[in-house]
Design a protein around this nucleic acid. Structure first.
Lengths: 239, 239
DNA sequence: AACACCGGCTATGTATACAGAATATGCATG
DNA sequence: CATGCATATTCTGTATACATAGCCGGTGTT
């Protein structure tokens, strides 16, 4: 289970992780032979991985001149959040109607105690984001809609890419936890409309926080250029 | 432009059309060698086509035992409509805010005269569904959100598959046109909330109509079994 | 000096060959 | 007669070889 037995899956996950973690920056050209030799797989499974990445919207064919990692501008983030508002509001509403109350009551307890969890936490906030991921899973399970779950899954991939841009502001994390708590309480109380509204509030604040930080950084482009150390090639180690 | 020059695109479009048109029924096993010989392409581009179909949710790997065309039960249709409600409401709302008024005023005129169009129409309602498709395009253009457009595009593929199940009831088509007219009017008037509500009404009625017809047919499974003449093989023409 | 054309090269797109795994079937044994 | 094991067949997964097309560089001509 450490590594998928299929080479195409390994190539897909590796490239996806590298794009999400900004090791492969937007605009990087992903040549087939170049990446296949780097990842130690043949061109055939690599092409399958690239096809899946294209379907995810993480790479796109730049006018036939090879595949490039898609850009993630502030406008793109706004677009992602417009879709996210629609899907997560629906998910919260349906989870409130159909969810197992006990599951969300348990999550309610954990989110209420999230400030303690934030005090002695990882530098990468592993425990916090793990809790959020468990909430997402609980909502997906409660909704029981595979189409909605699939749409949210691809969306969350893009959101992790966004998250790597915005530095974890402790004050924002605490506020976000309070917003999550309200969502969980509403679902546990089977209040569908409150769950929907609380989700809208949370997403509004999350987007607002990102926009504020982007403004402080005078544009996201400057920030992402300072992050990755690779020059322009997809290979970090030069020849 | 009649056919894509790439064999993988041709294989993808052909298989996608055949699945949507119920020529390949749910549960059909898509063997690689079988389909590659049938479509006259090699296994490599066919595999790429199958990967894209998996991403679309039209086929799924049945426990490693080969790829099969996904089922489309009444429960699946309800799930699709739950996603559709969320996405199309958002799309209508944003289109009302950002759309070019003149475009939707033109569509308003055409939808107002749709009863004449329905009188002398194709048996497949080509002109009617073409008008609906133009409305979809106009909304996508007005929204200007590539993520939302992509999500709606895959969703519409599934909806065409649903449409092929429900017989075109003239009364329902007329009522649907009236609902569409209200949506277009709301967008042209830049009334975002009315556009959102009118979309919800339309989708509610559309799903209700499908469920009603499914009930009359005593389940969709019986119907789809009567439609396609192929037995269980993916090859309509026997050897 | 600039533009156009030709040639080579590198990239993708496709086909085919090979290996490994899984399943089905048949035979033997209890 | 049933069940388990072994074997064969067929499938997917992977690699590599080949063709074609687009791009870049060079050279010749105006």
């Amino acid at each position: 289970m450490a590594v998928s037995r299929r080479a195409s899956d390994r190539a897909y996950q590796t490239l996806r992780d590298e794009i999400v973690e900004w090791e492969l920056r937007p605009g990087s050209v992903l040549g087939e032979v170049e990446q296949s030799t780097r990842l130690g797989v043949s061109r055939t499974p690599l092409r399958e991985a690239l096809t899946r990445l294209m379907a995810d919207g993480l790479v796109s064919s730049q006018s036939g001149r090879g595949l490039v990692v898609t850009d993630l501008s502030l406008a793109s983030i706004r677009e992602i959040f417009e879709v996210r508002q629609a899907l997560e509001e629906q998910a919260a509403r349906l989870a409130a109607r159909r969810g197992d109350t006990a599951v969300f009551q348990q999550l309610e307890i954990e989110f209420a105690a999230v400030n303690e969890l934030l005090e002695h936490d990882d530098p990468v906030r592993h425990a916090y984001y793990g809790l959020v991921a468990r909430l997402d899973d609980a909502i997906d399970t409660a909704v029981g809609n595979s189409y909605l779950a699939a749409a949210l899954a691809t969306l969350r991939t893009h959101l992790v890419r966004v998250r790597r841009l915005a530095v974890d502001d402790p004050a924002r994390l605490s506020a976000a936890a309070a917003e999550h708590l309200l969502i969980v309480q509403a679902i546990a109380a089977r209040d569908a409309e409150l769950a929907a509204h609380a989700t809208q509030v949370h997403l509004h604040q999350a987007l607002r926080n990102i926009q504020k930080m982007a403004h402080l950084q005078t544009g996201l482009q400057a920030d992402l250029l300072n992050r990755a150390s690779s020059t322009s090639s997809a290979l970090p180690k030069g020849t």
